[in-house]
């Protein structure tokens, strides 16, 4: 990690942390000003994180797709990007940052604690399909994260009228629809991720599927979200049940990235 990248990233982390604090203050004490300030800080943090990624990209000569640090750096950036997109689709959902931001901070913390050394892109990674694979992986994981975050909000608010700060969120049935929309978005990105990964694997190993732990977990999580979509769209599992499902399904994503990816390494060993 270069000094400039480190400064930018730590300032970004600081902005996100301050934003979480302000958001909490705004929600608990009903201070709208805190809410606005928090939103600005999130934007500043996102710009700083983007700049940190750009600096790293410039120095390594490749997109940050190698190793734990780079995965968490790019992954958390995509989750934030999706959070911004949700703002745009439906501005009242900006409050979901209360759930998404701590998760992003957790990811960045995990990345920073790993080895942030800068290495050139090794030959197995030199494939355009890798970019497609990684980008859609993060779009998928980001979408599922946002969906799970909204599921948490739905459940927290369900039947708790005394929690006034939750009134800031849109009506429950709208959250329910947004959970579905973000899951669908993630599900489509998941297909693209898997397809691009299959093409990459075929060029590299002469096979499109190898049943390694990451691949198997990825298929498992895709099927899990397939169950979600089936129950939600054809069997009427809405509201609280759908919110719980979004959270339960997310466990499989958490294991795919946070568990299998870190424990057994990235897919099959490369050349």
């Amino acid at each position: 990690m270069t000094l400039l990248e480190g400064i930018l990233l730590w300032l970004g982390v600081f902005s996100y942390t301050l934003a979480v604090g302000l958001l909490l203050w705004a929600l608990v004490f009903g201070r709208e000003k805190g809410h606005t300030l928090s939103r600005h800080l999130v934007t500043v943090g996102f710009v700083l994180q983007t700049a940190a990624i750009a600096v790293r990209w410039y120095h390594t000569g490749h997109a940050p797709v190698m190793g734990t640090y780079e995965h968490t750096l790019l992954g958390s950036w995509f989750i934030m990007l999706l959070q911004f997109m949700v703002y745009r689709w439906y501005p009242p959902m900006r409050i979901a940052a209360m759930v998404v931001l701590p998760f992003v901070l957790f990811m960045l913390g995990q990345g920073i604690m790993s080895k942030p050394e800068m290495v050139p892109l090794s030959p197995p990674y030199q494939s355009n399909w890798l970019w497609v694979h990684v980008i859609f992986a993060w779009i998928a994981y980001g979408s599922y994260t946002v969906a799970a975050g909204m599921g948490v909000v739905y459940i927290l608010r369900d039947g708790k009228k005394e929690w006034r700060f939750l009134d800031k969120f849109p009506p429950q049935d709208i959250i329910d629809d947004l959970v579905l929309k973000t899951v669908v978005f993630g599900f489509i990105a998941h297909v693209l991720m898997t397809g691009a990964g299959a093409i990459w694997a075929h060029g590299l190993w002469g096979r499109y599927w190898g049943w390694d732990p990451v691949e198997t977990w990825s298929l498992l999580s895709w099927l899990t979200y397939g169950v979600f979509l089936h129950l939600r769209t054809t069997m009427g599992w809405k509201g609280k049940r759908a919110a719980w499902l979004a959270i339960i399904c997310y466990v499989s994503i958490f294991i795919t990235f946070g568990g299998v990816g870190f424990i057994s390494g990235l897919h099959t060993p490369l050349l």
């Binding site: 669908v184 599900f187 489509i188 297909v191 397809g195 299959a198 093409i199 075929h202 002469g206 096979r207």
Partner: peptide, 25 residues
Amino acid sequence: ISRDLGVNWILVGFLTLVVGLVLRF
């Protein structure tokens, strides 16, 4: 050296899967 007659079907399948999902939702 590998021979796999299913690979093109798989790739077409993935592409069609995306088209189907996008249209569906």
